[in-house]
Design a protein around this nucleic acid. Structure first.
Lengths: 180, 180
DNA sequence: GAATATACGGGATGGCTATCCCGTTTAGGA
DNA sequence: TCCTAAACGGGATAGCCATCCCGTATATTC
């Protein structure tokens, strides 16, 4: 691979990351190209479809999330780990419009992208949840889908996130509701 | 106004109502025309823009919601009225994809449409909330925006609504979290 | 320093959609 | 029945966007 190719691919990835984060998933590919300082052809050669571009980005993001989940599970008691992860996810999504939209199911299948990247996001989340339930910290009838939807609710309030106090309040409300 | 004009306007309204409810706000105007059995020109003559068509529909829906809120406020104690309204809104949105999207802020400003129709949806909601808070039934720091976002969360789980049990669980979780 | 594979840019293409327009049809009154 | 204003249908237009293509430029190799 040629050196300028590698360089441009990185530029596109960086531009796309911030563009998706600030403007959401509907940002035009041409706008990403403009921000990266390349032509649209360069973008589509490196990433044949917009979805593949987003998949490349979400993959690294998922990596971080899975790592965070693992760290929490290892260092904290089950209930605390679960609720800390919930809060972490809300903060992530609040600062990242694209992630929020993907979680809300608007266009991209984030879990499929994670799986194709070799990460089992759903499994990690399920692990935290069931451990917390076994420890009696979370209502036993709650499902993974419930939790994801509630995360969406926490960030549905405002986009982009301008009020961290309100966000914390939302997390508190949802957490209180989830407790056994 | 000519009789066929009135008739067609009603046909368009009916078709649009079900189309928005089942397919969401992004259903093409041409599809609505097809379902109504008229040409696209007829639709845009009666409703110059897609948004005006949706406003006409949402207006009647808001009327029902406001009426329901008034009835609950009149017949039940503050806390009970508030939580019953919450549950009602979730059920409404779960059965109406367009309403759900509008509440989630995807494209149409439902409150502006309500106001232009002479209904003060926001005011009615705020009334239920503050009464419930005064009665000590709801956390005092919760805002109207919080409640709306949580409603969005309750229906973010699935679209269209296929699992009423899960929906009820979501409402329970959120209600529990909102209690003082 | 020449040859060649690789990469670049951005215009061309095609699909989708809302909105407008206008030739044709029809309702409803005289 | 005839006339006219009102309404109809659906093609035309215009904007937006992802993706493809290809002539041009450049990095790398020998």
């Amino acid at each position: 691979m040629r050196a300028d190719g590698v360089r441009n691919q990185r530029k596109v990835l960086d531009a796309a990351m911030t563009a998706f984060a600030t403007d959401g998933l509907s940002v035009p590919v041409a706008e990403i190209a403009r921000r990266a300082g390349v032509g649209t052809g360069t973008v589509s050669r490196h990433f044949p479809t917009k979805e593949s571009l987003y998949a490349a980005i979400v993959s690294t993001r998922v990596e971080e999330i899975v790592a965070k989940a693992g760290e929490l599970a290892a260092t904290r008691p089950p209930g605390e780990a679960f609720f800390a992860f919930l809060s972490y996810m809300v903060d992530q999504a609040a600062e990242n419009r694209g992630l929020a939209q993907a979680l809300a199911g608007a266009g991209f299948d984030i879990e499929a992208a994670a799986e194709s990247g070799g990460h089992d996001l759903a499994g990690v989340e399920a692990g935290l949840l069931t451990r917390a339930q076994s420890a009696g910290a979370v209502r036993p009838d709650v499902t993974n889908a419930d939790v994801k939807a509630l995360i969406v609710g926490c960030i549905a309030r405002e986009q982009p996130a301008t009020d961290p106090i309100a966000r914390r309040r939302m997390v508190e409300i949802v957490s209180a509701g989830l407790r056994a």
